[in-house]
């Protein structure tokens, strides 16, 4: 039987209560909104790009502990990465939370705390919402977003 403690790891609970980079990003040049229409979770991810690399990232919105902690820890691990590295990290993260990763997940860093999500299939969408939103922001328009 899946253990709740595998899902609600201390680090996840801590990030859900005090999310990092939780703000509107002044001077963001990429932005995307992500919704989970089934549960009402919604996040906005802001990016400031420097050529191909992510100079700064922030997010806002509301959702469950898993989705909020995932968004928070994503912003920490993605800052300074290139677009390509960010996409690779998402793919790896996705395999981990769906239980299809073969490796030890060592290069995921702190994000390995989300491995427990794979025991809770209904919560995979919570863990990946911010990442899908990031991907949309990376692929989105280069125009400056309104920061009013």
């Amino acid at each position: 039987m899946a253990d709740l403690r595998d899902l609600y790891q201390e680090l996840i609970l801590e990030h859900s209560k005090a999310p990092r980079n939780y703000r509107q990003l002044a001077g963001a040049d990429h932005k995307a909104e992500g919704f989970n229409p089934l549960c009402g979770d919604h996040f906005t991810v802001y990016l400031k790009m420097d050529g191909d690399s992510i100079q700064d990232i922030a997010f806002q919105g509301s959702g469950c502990a898993i989705s909020k902690a995932s968004a928070s820890m994503m912003t920490q691990s993605i800052k300074g990465k290139t677009k390509e590295q960010a996409k690779e990290l998402f793919e790896h993260f996705h395999r981990t939370v769906t239980g299809t990763a073969n490796g030890d997940g060592s290069d995921l860093g702190k994000l390995t705390v989300f491995a427990g999500v794979s025991e809770f299939p209904t919560r995979v969408k919570c863990a990946t919402l911010a990442w899908h939103t990031l991907q949309a922001a990376l692929e989105g328009s280069q125009e400056s977003v309104s920061t009013e």
Binding site: L4, K17, C39, G40, C64, I66, T122
Partner: peptide, 23 residues
Amino acid sequence: DGVHPHDMGTILDQEGIAIRTGH
């Protein structure tokens, strides 16, 4: 307070309790 209904739903589910969470 301080707990999203989804997290409540998952934890209750571990106890065999089925409730609905969401909108």
